[in-house]
Amino acid sequence: MSAPDQPTGQPGQPAPTVASVEAVVRRQLATALGGRRGMVEAAVPTIMFTVLWLTTRELLLAVGISVAAALVLLAVRLVQRSTPQFVLNALVGIGIGYLFVWLAQRRGGSEEEQALAYFLPGILYNGGYTVLLAVSCLVTWPLVGFMVGSVTGDPTAWHEDRQVVRLCTRLTWLLALPCALRVAVQGPVWLGGSSGALEADAAIAILGVLKIVLGWPLQLAALAGMVWLLGRNTTPIESVAR
């Protein structure tokens, strides 16, 4: 239930349903992460692919079963009439991974090289996301600030409040940290497997484990840091909604 003295926001815009910037970010992050179920749905296809490749050495079978698992999860979501966002995200990830596998196959790559190619998009994505988040902080337009703007009705008004900019900058750096760590850890393993410095099967197994361990667990650690930071202060949302 909304508080009776809650600010009404800008004329013509819907009233915010939260009273502080910290509450806005907490709510938006909870929606974006999808809770425990979203984490499971994101992890299952990767687990299926890694286990099947290592046990059968059949690349198409590994990709096919991981897609089938994601489709089953999607069907359950549709039957329950709940958001399929996180399953669809997993399917998109599998599709992009298979595109890289296909490109490796077209270049005449071995099965090991094709399996390694499956993990490359995730490393590139995390690298790109790290750069994007870091640049947004360095130019003092942290991306988390736009979460606040999406609720206040004005996408840029938050930037006028230095306290909000500082808070959103710290939160954005915390979001960037897991992505940077994934690249720093997974990148050398992928390069080692691709160059022959590391046995390809060992690199694939390590990447599969790292993709899971450095996935949601690392994201949750970053989220815990963000929750701690958000719990320290209460920044009135009216200061950025006026």
Rank of each mutant, 00 (worst) to 15 (best):
G12T: 07
L175A: 14
F86N: 04
T169Q: 12
T234V: 09
L198H: 01
P121L: 02
A180I: 09
F119R: 05
A134Y: 01
A42F: 10
P155S: 13
A90H: 01
A197D: 08
C137H: 03
G128H: 09
T152Y: 04
V240Y: 05
V144W: 06
S110T: 15
T31E: 15
V44S: 00
G122N: 07
V144R: 03
E238D: 14
P178K: 04
D161G: 00
E113M: 10
L54S: 06
A30P: 04
L223N: 13
R106Q: 15
Y129L: 15
V79H: 10
Q186I: 06
T172K: 08
C179D: 12
M39V: 10
Q219H: 11
P142H: 09
L33P: 01
M226C: 06
L181T: 10
P45W: 06
A62D: 09
E238I: 03
P188G: 07
L207M: 08
T56E: 07
R106I: 08
F86E: 04
A23Q: 14
L138S: 07
R106V: 11
A75W: 09
T50Q: 05
V151K: 01
Q10E: 15
L223Q: 14
I65K: 00
C137Q: 05
A115D: 00
A180D: 01
R37E: 08
M147C: 08
V67F: 15
C168W: 02
Q219K: 09
F119T: 01
A180P: 02
Y129H: 07
W53P: 06
A176E: 07
L33R: 14
G35T: 04
L143S: 07
V44M: 00
I206P: 00
T31K: 14
P84S: 05
W228A: 14
G145T: 12
R170G: 12
V63C: 11
P121D: 06
N126C: 10
W53Y: 15
R36I: 09
A62G: 09
I47T: 12
A200W: 00
R107E: 15
G35L: 10
G128K: 11
D161M: 03
T140W: 12
T130Q: 12
E199H: 10
K211Y: 08
P45V: 07
A70M: 02
A157M: 09
L120W: 09
E41V: 10
S239H: 12
V144K: 05
I237E: 02
T31F: 14
L220Q: 13
L60A: 14
P217Q: 03
P45I: 04
G34Q: 04
S2A: 14
T130M: 13
R106M: 14
Y118S: 01
S239D: 13
W216A: 15
P188R: 08
L229S: 07
V92Q: 03
I206Y: 05
L116E: 01
L88D: 01
W216I: 07
V240L: 05
R77V: 10
L60T: 08
R166A: 15
G187A: 13
A221F: 10
V240M: 04
A117M: 04
A176T: 02
T172H: 08
L29D: 12
R242C: 05
P45L: 07
L91D: 07
G38F: 05
V165Q: 01
A115L: 03
E22A: 04
G127V: 13
L191E: 07
Y129F: 13
R170V: 09
V18G: 02
V63H: 02
C168N: 12
